[in-house]
């Protein structure tokens, strides 16, 4: 595990530096425009984005058949899977810490900008985001980093398309009894639970995805030729 983490951090020194920069840019771009709500977005986005960037960077290190060198060392396949999850968690923590640091700096009154402090709910959102994105790990073990890159591009397109479709769907929905009544039930149920409930629900879904991703990764990587 230590050797894998060392490999991922030593080979990703530029990403580590960028991690700090991301948080700063996000704060300047979003967190300082308003107060607490925007800061909250920056904390969550910085933590998750930096963790995910570290994970993608780790996938990308596989060019030139480098895993053949790594796995000629005494490192088990089981450990290799665990390391990806640990890396995602450490990267997320690293990004969050930078965001918190910049948040504290911008809270100094003399600077003249005001940001909100990170909240427990933000931390929950960060962990949820991290767990939701862990589904890329089995995908990587199954198809490799090149296809992951294409998947990301397609995913972004689908995300935008999904938002457009969603907005269209919502525009059709004119109050209770509209064309898609079951959505009202779902939205109503989620709204009724409050902010904490919604975030716990997402965290639960994230946890489910993370557990499935871990199990699938172990299964895939155990039988894969390197």
């Amino acid at each position: 595990m230590k050797a894998l983490l060392l490999k991922d951090t030593l080979a990703q020194k530029p990403n580590l530096m960028l991690g700090a920069l991301y948080s700063l840019i996000f704060f300047v771009a979003f967190g300082l425009l308003d107060d607490a709500p925007s800061s909250s977005f920056v904390y969550v986005f910085s933590g998750v984005a930096v963790g995910f960037t570290m994970l993608l960077g780790s996938f990308k290190l596989d060019v030139n058949d480098t895993p053949r060198f790594m796995f000629s060392l005494p490192i088990s396949r089981r450990t290799a899977v665990r390391e990806k999850f640990v890396l995602l968690a450490l990267g997320t923590m690293y990004g969050t810490l930078w965001a918190m640091l910049f948040g504290l700096v911008f809270m100094i009154p003399a600077i003249g900008w005001s940001t909100g402090a990170i909240t427990g709910l933000d931390l929950l959102r960060i962990v949820s985001g991290m767990m939701l994105l862990s589904f890329f790990i089995p995908l990587y073990f199954r198809v490799g980093h090149t296809i992951i890159r294409y998947t990301l591009v397609i995913g972004m397109v689908l995300l935008v398309a999904g938002q457009i479709v969603g907005m269209l769907v919502l525009s059709f929905r004119q109050g209770p009894g509209g064309p898609i009544p079951f959505l009202d039930v779902i939205f109503g149920w989620m709204k009724g639970g409050g902010d904490l409930f919604r975030n716990l629900l997402i965290a639960g879904i994230g946890l489910g995805i993370a557990i499935l991703s871990y199990a699938a990764s172990q299964l895939i990587w155990r039988h894969r030729d390197i």
Binding site: K2, A3, L6, K7, L10, A11, L61, N64, D65, T66, R68, F69, M70, S72, L73, P74, I75
Partner: peptide
């Protein structure tokens, strides 16, 4: 394991490669 040249991490240097190997081998 002595292998073809392409299996090494191009981004690292020899010292860092040794650091990784040291962490793996007892």
């Amino acid at each position: 394991f002595v292998h073809e040249s392409s299996y090494m991490f191009d981004q690292l240097n020899a010292r860092e490669t040794g650091t990784i190997a040291r962490a793996a081998y007892g």
